[in-house]
Nucleic acid binder design. Structure first.
Lengths: 137, 137
DNA sequence: CTTGACCCTGTAGTGACTACAGGGTCCATG
DNA sequence: CATGGACCCTGTAGTCACTACAGGGTCAAG
């Protein structure tokens, strides 16, 4: 288990399902530590980078913001600390997701009501346009 | 019906619940036509602007993109045309909202499962961190 | 030694605003 | 008539999380 499992950026991208540009972006914003460079100035990633990037991608898939992920990664480093702070971040995110779902469902209802009124006539008698305009001139 | 009900940008903002900067932004991107200017170079809005901006805001509240709104406004101008194209835009938007709701609900479930595993111990045995990391090193 | 896939940096674009900075205008007071 | 403060102007940069170039350099196969 020596240097044989080191990856260049393309291999890391493939291994994690991330675009190359996105990996460079995570480095720029300090989420992924800058890796060693090869003689030709190529980024050379180790196992630890793969783990960290997988963590980031999984958290992104779950809708955490990069700031939240940064906080989670910081917390994860302090192995002896209580994980209540981690739990809090996850709960806050869950609350936000719940709010978004509720908002979208309310919006969906309005939209559905709008569409169900369409009589497929001309625009001048279009209920959708009417409903959007407050007092047509 | 003379010039007495013309508005400056602040009054239009108040009347429509829009920020002044947002109104200027809509003008810049061609959603709201550039109004006449006063002697002191202030924007001077007429009734038509109020109607159009109200339409834009209402459509935004319903989650339509500015591109979609642009299309709706274009269609609304052609009073004799069939409103099927309007209906189509609205239906496509509804489908997108449905997809977003489904995505968020799936995400919500995963997140909920994650959180319910928290035993409030130390980070080193944190299920949330574990679930995010694929194979901790 | 050339080809083509890969890598590098740096900058600009996305959507829909928001937030200044650094000025000008208007109007009601004193 | 001067002053103060609320309003308005333009232009630019910032937000979030990337994405997409442009214009180069590196590397391995043939």
């Amino acid at each position: 288990m020596a240097a044989e499992n080191s990856l260049n950026i393309g291999a890391l991208a493939k291994a994690t399902g991330t675009k190359v540009e996105t990996i460079r972006w995570y480095e720029r914003v300090g989420l992924l530590p800058a890796p060693a460079r090869s003689a030709g100035n190529y980024r050379t990633y180790a196992e630890a980078h793969l783990g960290r990037l997988s963590f980031i991608r999984r958290a992104r898939d779950l809708g955490f913001s990069l700031d939240q992920i940064r906080a989670l990664l910081d917390l994860a480093e302090d192995r002896d600390r209580s994980c209540d702070a981690v739990d809090l971040i996850a709960r806050e995110h869950l609350d936000e997701v719940d709010r978004k779902i509720a908002d979208l469902q309310a919006l969906r209802q309005e939209l559905d009501a709008l569409i169900s009124q369409c009589r497929h006539g001309s625009v001048s008698e279009c209920r959708i346009i009417e409903a959007l305009a407050p007092s047509a001139g």
